[in-house]
Design a protein around this nucleic acid. Structure first.
Ligand SMILES: [Mn+2]
Ligand SMILES: [Mn+2]
Ligand SMILES: [Zn+2]
Ligand SMILES: [Zn+2]
Lengths: 138, 138
DNA sequence: TATTATATTGTAATCATTACAAAGAAAAAA
DNA sequence: TTTTTTCTTTGTAATGATTACAATATAATA
């Protein structure tokens, strides 16, 4: 649960211009932890920031992704999602409720002989299935 | 390198109606091994099958994916790709040349305590970076 | 405060994918 | 083989997410 003040300092340190919109988007991302879509962020912030434009959300998320302050996830087609946690971890998406769960995984142990002379910059792992919550409702 | 005849028999066995388009699309997918996009398949087959429609390619690929005869991959946004190899394996996409490489990986070893009571139906692993070919050209 | 650089916004454009209905082709029946 | 039935293909239009663009607004700096 990061406060707006903590977020401000983080951005200032990195020389990223501090705007109301950026702070609100980041605050939402850090605190919601739902790996939200652009649509979700938009709906959630529209009341508080009525002028907010979807373009701004796209711009902000893309910009911060490039700077590795947040991460973008693509698990399903037409559904870019964003994550405030940049430490590499795995994701599980429940096919029933759509919720996305984090899990720890040792990415260093993931290796392949065939890629010996390759430069690996990014490793992605995700699972799909049915979460325990949905299973218990059956 | 599967022949059209082998493909025909495979589909017949599974009671999938045998059409010229389906065979051509499957033949291309099995033999090209490039994890092609719809666009790539379309361009490649247009000469041989001039009537071919992109809608048919989408229909065919989606249908065969549901039946687990092929697999669809999403590595980058706006770029669904297809794979004739359905055995679970990892993918490496080169950020320079865009080529996608297969690699073997033991998916069973991929596990997470946090998902103990979850039903896991699908595991996806992919890497990004620069392939040996592109590295040697620098 | 005034200036400058950068961000936000609304709208239009783009691009991949899907929906739909008419025409065509494959399989089954006769 | 011919007829009938069922499923597939096709072109076009619709959809939905994302990006391009230019005018306006705001943050940082002096
Ligand atoms: Mn996460
Ligand atoms: Mn593959
Ligand atoms: Zn669930
Ligand atoms: Zn390469």
């Amino acid at each position: 649960m990061k406060t707006l003040n903590e977020l401000s300092n983080e951005l200032k340190k990195k020389n990223i211009r501090l705007t109301h919109q950026r702070l609100k988007i980041l605050e939402y991302l850090y605190n919601a932890k739902t790996h939200p879509t652009v649509e979700e962020i938009y709906s959630a912030l529209k009341k508080e920031v009525p002028s907010l434009s979807k373009t701004t959300i796209y711009n902000t998320l893309n910009y911060l992704s490039e700077l590795n302050i947040i991460k973008s996830l693509i698990i399903d087609e037409n559904e870019a999602r964003f994550d405030g946690v940049t430490d590499n971890h795995g994701h599980f998406k429940c096919s029933k409720c759509g919720k996305i769960y984090d899990f720890d995984i040792n990415m260093d142990a993931l290796a392949a002989d065939r890629l010996d002379n390759f430069e690996i910059n990014e490793k992605t792992v995700y699972f799909k299935g049915i979460c325990s919550g949905c299973l218990s409702k059956i």
